[in-house]
Write a protein that binds this DNA or RNA. Structure first.
Length: 562
RNA sequence: UGUCCCGUGGUGUAAUUGGCAACACGUCUGAUUCUGGAUCAGAAGAGUUCAAGUUCGAGACUUGACGGGACAACCA
């Protein structure tokens, strides 16, 4: 009854930090977070985890969350990605209002800050090649060595840096480095490169700049410029934090400083989650684009039939920790079933049609039988489905020689056609050459019409069906896991491509669906009874209906059958 | 031979900050149903990587092992 009686919902360690910071005043600021994608690819479900966190914390604590494109590397970034990223965030149900920012908005301030560091003798221009700088850095277990240019005079550094940006030097010939500590046990503090020369055009600033800041020199500062209080990122940036803090120390003029907190990134079984690998799959045409329904991208999941709610629910369940875990994709499948179970109408669709002829049913007669659209939700109402002498059933639902515990149709057995009548199998036609069953002959019991209450005749099996005369043809795409290995990218001796599942896409044509589906629109979702959840694909047209199977229903018979 | 992070049922997370380990998924029973789905009821499954210490009491604290991960891109 009381609030206290309920177990307190546990909050993540990040939320605990935020709550503590707020308690201590948070420098007089409300929570302000940011989601900072680089526009060099499409968002995937791992990004959704970060989005839910940053937007979620802001929402929960009455703060704000900015969208900031981390566009400091013009050679990899494109506008195409900017637009797609915005669509995906909105689709998930989050909004950054007018706060759409770009790291490139801060290029001038960042440049000025670099100049300031040079003047404070905390940065210098290095003329060495990348290879030389790299060897001088040492290794994680060996200290680095100082560059011969480290002691360059301030004026010379200033002059060189300005000339770098004027385009007087080639790419790779000079870099600007922060002067920190070449012997630090943290590699990131060994005089990190903060500016490099890039002559490619930037998707927003064009050719205005010839020098571009590195991630470490842009990210924390951008947070600072925007007044971010909590900068939430994934675990691999943990070792960057001392550097993040070092730059903030040079920059801050009051008590305010953004705080970086790291959490575990999302790993899913049977898929890959790095943008580079996903890009490889797209470029090498292992999949049909970023929005291929087998991809873990948000646009792929959307096309597959996933709902934002199911993704958010999944993310909620897996939580935020510092443990590098690999999450089971079957949990995602659970959350989408849970969601679709409530929201989708039930329909009949036959994937592998087998014709059943009901011999004692009058030719030419059509009855409209009434079916419940969703037993979970009465408000979704009922619909009429035509029934007649010839219907299609699922090929798997008939067996000439049924195994033990087979509840479906077989010679001499009875089943119910859902919503219609109980039928009995009296015979079948078999192709002598191929051994394939081509038709099944049945009789029906007119007394068993659904809804009639006098009958206590019971059958074990209930089948879905589609009237042969009224059926609409459809193409159905069945998806399986993209990879056959649980952890395709975690194998040292094999490339992830070797684990691609050759059966990840099966296209079925000549499927038969009930006539009410004729005008279904792309992304419309249904439960094909006894089969699974399906949604209309973008490829669907008026003359060629195309469905994607989002996820099958759990199938205990398939399990028994194993 | 470095620095930092992490180690709780099969999996993912909890444990009110030290009081005999909880939840979800999955698994297995059973009930029920005109979806072998869903739903409902129930069960099995970890003594918290190991060891020592502090304490009346440790999954939580300390130390040390062991195991896993991150860090040596002019990527983010």
């Amino acid at each position: 009854m009381r609030e206290n009686d309920k177990p307190k919902p546990s909050i993540s360690f990040i939320e605990q930090f935020i709550a503590e910071d707020l308690k201590e005043g948070n420098n007089g600021r409300p929570v302000h977070t940011r989601f900072p994608p680089e526009p060099n690819g499409y968002l995937h479900i791992g990004h959704a985890k970060a989005i839910c966190l940053s937007f979620g914390m802001a929402q929960k604590y009455g703060g704000k969350c900015n969208l900031r494109f981390d566009d400091t590397n013009p050679v990899k970034e494109e506008v195409e990605y900017v637009d797609a990223i915005k669509d995906d965030i909105h689709w998930l149900g989050f909004d950054w209002e007018e706060r759409e920012y770009y790291a490139s908005d801060y290029f001038a301030r960042l440049f000025d800050f670099a100049v300031e560091l040079i003047k404070k003798n905390l940065a210098y221009v290095d003329d060495q090649t990348a290879a030389v700088i790299s060897t001088q850095k040492g290794t994680p277990s060996q200290p680095g060595q100082e560059s011969p240019f480290r002691k360059r005079e301030v004026d010379e550094n200033l002059d060189l840096f300005y000339r770098m940006n004027k385009g007087e030097f080639d790419e790779g010939s000079h870099v600007l480095r922060a002067k920190i500590d070449m012997t630090s046990p943290n590699m990131h503090l060994r005089d990190p490169i903060i500016y490099r020369i890039i002559t490619s055009s930037h998707h927003r600033t064009g050719s205005k700049w010839m020098v571009y800041p590195m991630y470490d020199f842009a990210h924390g500062q951008s947070d600072y410029f925007e007044g971010i209080t909590h900068s939430l990122c994934t675990l691999e940036f943990e070792v960057h934090r001392p550097l993040y803090d070092w730059f903030i120390d040079q920059l801050k003029t009051s008590d305010y400083r953004p705080r970086q907190i790291e959490f575990n990134r999302l790993n899913l079984t049977y898929t890959v989650m790095s943008k580079r690998k996903l890009l490889d799959l797209v470029r090498e045409e292992k999949v049909n684009g970023w929005d291929d329904p087998r991809m873990p991208t948000l646009c792929g999941l959307r096309r597959r039939g996933y709902t934002p709610e199911s993704i958010k629910r999944f993310i909620d369940l897996i939580g935020y920790t510092k443990v590098e875990a690999i999450n089971d994709i079957s949990l995602l499948e659970h959350t989408i079933r849970e969601d679709l179970n409530i929201r989708t109408p039930r329909v009949f669709g036959v994937l592998n049609p087998l014709k059943v002829i009901i011999k004692n049913y009058p030719e030419g007669k059509v009855e409209n039988v009434e079916l419940i659209n969703n037993p979970e939700d009465e408000t979704m109402g009922k619909r009429l489905v035509p029934f007649c002498r010839e219907v299609y059933i699922e090929h798997d639902d008939f067996m000439e020689v049924p195994p033990h515990k087979f509840f479906r149709l077989a010679p001499g057995t009875e089943v119910r056609l859902k919503g219609a009548y109980i039928i009995k199998c009296e015979g079948f036609k078999k192709n002598e050459k191929t051994g394939e069953i081509e038709e099944v002959y049945c009789t029906y019991d007119p007394e068993t019409r659904s809804g009639g209450n006098t009958l206590d005749k019971k059958v074990k099996g209930t089948l879905h069906w589609v009237s042969a005369k009224h059926a609409v043809d459809a193409e159905v795409r069945l998806y399986d896991r993209l990879f056959s290995h649980e952890d395709p990218s975690g194998q040292k001796c094999a490339d992830f491509r070797e684990f691609l599942n050759p059966e990840s896409l099966k296209t079925l044509t000549g499927c038969k669906v009930e006539p009410s589906l004729k005008s279904a629109m792309p992304l419309e979702k249904f439960q094909f009874q006894r089969l699974g959840y399906f949604c209309v694909d973008y490829d669907s047209t008026e003359t060629n209906l195309v469905f994607n199977r989002t996820v099958p229903l759990k199938d205990t018979w398939a399990k028994i059958n194993k």
